[in-house]
Write a protein that binds this DNA or RNA. Structure first.
Lengths: 160, 160
DNA sequence: GCTTGCGTTGACGCTAACGTAAAGGGAATA
DNA sequence: TATTCCCTTTACGTTAGCGTCAACGCAAGC
C-alpha cells in the first residue's frame, strides 16, 4: 500500500534522495567518505534509512548557512551522542558555543545585507522606471521564486 | 592633530586596513585583482581612501554571509552606479531579486541551526554537569566572546 | 545474448580564495 | 654603509567540495 512510503521503515535508494534534495550521487558518496553519512548496504548498493534522510537534511541546512562539512560532521556526532562519548563532546563544547556567537553575528550581517541589497534594487528600479519602463521585471518572475520556496528545499547559494 | 585621523580625507596603508579588519595584504591585493577594490597609488604603494575602506567593509560582510567575490563585485557596481550604466544593472536586477529570496531563506535556516545547536549544547552540558562538573566551561570564556563581538568585526567562519 | 539502466569504486580535474615563497625597490635607522 | 622594514610583483601551492570520466557488476526486458 502507498502508506508504506510514509512509514519510518521506508528506505531510499541513492537516486531517490538525490532527486528529492537536488543533489548528485557523487555528493552523497562524498559525504559518506567524509563520515557524515553511513547508509547500510544491500549487497553493493547503498540503502538509506529515514534517519539517514534526516541526517542529510541537517547536512544540507548546515551547508546553506556556510558551515564546512568537517564541522557539520562534529555537530552530527553531537546529536548522535546519546550517552556514550560525552567526554569527547565536552571537548568540542567551547568551540560550538563560539560558533553560536558567530552565527548570531552572521544573522545580523545577513539582515543588513538584505536591507541594503533591497534598497539598492529599488533605487535601480526607480531609475529604470523613468528611463526604460519596458525593461522592468514582470510579476511572473516573483511568482516563480515563491513557488520555488514552497517546494521546500532551497537552491544552493552558488546556483547559476 | 589627532582629529585628522577621523576626517574623511584620511588615507590608509595596506597594513593599517589589514590590522583593522584582520585580513592579510594578500587578500586585499586579491580583491583588487578581482576588481572589487581600486586604491590609488603613491608611487608603487597602494593608498586606500575612506571610500575604499567602506567598500572593504561591504566586501567582508558579503563574505560573512556567504556571497562569492564575483557577486560582491556586481553588488558594489550596483552601488557605484550613480546614474551611468543603469542599463547594465537592469540586466542583473532579476538575479539580485532572486538572491534576496535566497538570503531570506538562508536567514530561516540560520535561525533554525542556532536553535538546534544551542539545545544540543545545553543537553551535553547537563549530562556533563552530572558526570564531570569539573569540565564545564568557565564564564570567562563567554566574556571573551562578547568582547570579541564588541570589537566590531567578527572573525571569519573558517577561523580556527 | 545484448542492450539499457541503476548501481559501484577509483582516479583525475576543476574553481574559489587565498597562502607562501622568491626576488626586488625605496626609506629610515644603526 | 649595512640592516631593517614595509612595500611591490610574479608565480606556484593548497584546501574544500564536489564534477567528470572510466571501467565494471547486476537485473530486467527484448
Amino acid at each position: 500500500m502507498l502508506a508504506e512510503l510514509r512509514r519510518p521503515e521506508r528506505t531510499f535508494t541513492i537516486r531517490q534522495l538525490c532527486q528529492e534534495f537536488k543533489v548528485t550521487p557523487r555528493a552523497l558518496r562524498f559525504y559518506e567518505d567524509k563520515g557524515l553519512l553511513a547508509p547500510s548496504r544491500d549487497g553493493m548498493n547503498r540503502v538509506y534509512s529515514y534517519k539517514d534522510r534526516a541526517r542529510l537534511q541537517l547536512i544540507l541546512r548546515g551547508k546553506r548557512v556556510g558551515l564546512p562539512l568537517a564541522e557539520i560532521r562534529e555537530i552530527l556526532e553531537l546529536y548522535g551522542a546519546e550517552d556514550g562519548p560525552v567526554m569527547q563532546s565536552a571537548h568540542s563544547l567551547k568551540r560550538f558555543r563560539h560558533r553560536i556567537v558567530e552565527m548570531e553575528q552572521q544573522r545580523e550581517d545577513l539582515d543588513q545585507a538584505i536591507i541594503e541589497l533591497k534598497s539598492a534594487c529599488e533605487r535601480i528600479e526607480k531609475q529604470l522606471a523613468e528611463v526604460r519602463p519596458d525593461l522592468l521585471p514582470r510579476a511572473e518572475d516573483y511568482d516563480q521564486m515563491l513557488r520555488a520556496r514552497l517546494d521546500g528545499h532551497s537552491y544552493p547559494l552558488s546556483a547559476k
